[in-house]
């Protein structure tokens, strides 16, 4: 299928990826070509086939309910770009009342 530049922008928004106009212009034909190739999977008769998401059927794995040491908080926070009061800090998520 051919992906339009508007569709590329829509997917980029879903993926939380800002793209420049040049990137959008380059990606539209590239993604169209790759998806056009990948669409071959549709030619395989598989209506009655169960999907495989994993080489071995995944089962829930539970460990014994015992307390164990976790990673040290400070070591984890040391790798974060912005920390406040021992927490990951982020910009505001909800817009202010206008």
């Amino acid at each position: 299928m051919a992906l339009s530049e508007d569709e590329v922008r829509h997917v980029a928004r879903l993926a939380r990826l800002s793209l420049t106009d040049d990137e959008v212009a380059a990606l539209a034909p590239q993604l169209s070509e790759i998806l056009g190739y990948a669409e071959q999977v549709g030619q395989v008769a598989a209506a009655e086939v169960a999907p495989t998401t994993h080489p071995f059927a995944p089962t829930d794995v539970a460990r014994a309910d015992e307390r164990r040491p976790s990673l040290a908080r400070d070591e984890i926070l040391a790798g974060a770009p912005h920390v406040e009061q021992d927490r990951f800090a982020v910009p505001r998520i909800v817009a202010e009342e206008g």
């Binding site: 997917v11 993604l31 549709g42 495989t52």
Partner: peptide, 24 residues
């Protein structure tokens, strides 16, 4: 971008689900 598109509403069945059946 390919993955987000393949998993997005309206395309999931034709892309990701069908590919997962081919995997079987």
């Amino acid at each position: 971008m390919i993955g987000t598109h393949a998993l997005s509403s309206g395309y999931y069945d034709a892309y990701y689900l069908q590919a997962s059946k081919v995997r079987t």
